[in-house]
């Protein structure tokens, strides 16, 4: 009994010792700037002069801004599109890859998850979408369909931003790594019960991947709610405001309008929105194996 208690105490000590360096780093470089930013959210911030306390005025100006609604709508639309269309692709590709022979996996993995510098990726997609010279319109014309305006069409623009995600992704590797821990006995047991391929995926593979999928889902939500670079470089937020996302608007406020206070207030709002989604997601999509 005594040994067990000290064992727990020892475990706790080890737990804190293992987390200490990360806690320190996260405190200084993760939270500190964020706390500072929260403080700025209640100031009129000047880069040179002393900031003035303005209370909730920044939040009020965010609330009164019609663009706030627009950018949140855009961002949520983007998130739904991107998670809906691209989230499951790497999961299934990884599962399917595991069926190939070892030699084929080696090559396929390289070719599927080949790293393309983002500079190149963006340039290529801009070329594909180009209304006059682009390949996609070339193909459409070739098969006798009317050309589309792609990024220049406010209704299509957001979809066009999401599509590259279908083939430019890296998270497949994560699933490959996780799939290696699925014990083969489970498949054998399912086989004995006469389960087919899809049923085995459903009853064995996916449940085993659940923690990793849950983690990746959190990350996808956060990532897509904060999408910035893609619309920033591909469309500059246009046409109109059709692809202006929350973080892009934050960036514009902070560094193009020099209104760090309002930018931060908007970031705080975004923080709470994402937080709510994550808490809900963790409630409905539990990551532990046993549930």
């Amino acid at each position: 009994m005594a040994a067990a208690v000290s064992g727990i105490g020892y475990k706790r000590a080890a737990a804190w010792a293992f987390s200490a360096p990360a806690i320190l780093c996260q405190f200084f470089f993760g939270w500190f700037p964020v706390l500072f930013a929260f403080y700025v959210g209640f100031q009129r911030y000047y880069f040179v002069k002393q900031p003035e306390f303005v209370g909730l005025r920044n939040l009020q100006s965010v609330a009164a801004d019609p663009l706030t609604v627009t950018v949140f709508q855009n961002t949520i639309y983007y998130s739904i599109l991107s998670i809906g269309l691209t989230f499951i692709v790497p999961i299934f590709v990884s599962i399917l890859l595991m069926e190939m022979s070892r030699k084929t996996i080696r090559w396929m993995m390289l070719l599927w998850f080949i790293p393309v510098a983002s500079t190149a990726g963006i340039a290529i997609w801009k070329y594909l979408y180009n209304p006059q010279l682009g390949l996609l319109n070339g193909i459409l014309k070739g098969i006798g369909l009317p050309a589309l305006k792609w990024l220049d069409d406010p209704a299509l623009a957001m979809l066009c931003l999401v599509l590259p995600g279908l083939i430019l992704f890296g998270p497949g590797l994560i699933y490959i790594a996780a799939l290696q821990n699925v014990p083969e006995e489970l498949y054998e047991a399912a086989e004995l019960e006469g389960a087919g391929f899809l049923r085995k995926v459903r009853t064995v593979t996916l449940p085993r991947l659940r923690p990793v999928i849950a983690m990746m889902l959190i990350f996808s939500i956060i990532g897509s709610m904060q999408v910035f670079e893609l619309p920033f470089i591909m469309t500059g937020g246009g046409p109109g405001y059709a692809t202006t996302t929350v973080v892009m608007y934050i960036y514009n406020l902070a560094f193009l309008s020099y209104d760090l206070g309002k930018a931060t207030a908007l970031a705080i709002v975004l923080f709470f929105v994402i937080m709510t989604i994550i808490v809900l997601q963790r409630k409905f999509f539990r990551e532990d194996l046993d549930t």
Binding site: K149, D152, D153, P154, G237, G238, P239, G240
Partner: peptide, 11 residues
């Protein structure tokens, strides 16, 4: 203004 002109042109 760019957004306005872009919308006038694209829609």
């Amino acid at each position: 203004m760019i957004a306005m002109y872009a919308e006038a042109i694209t829609t």
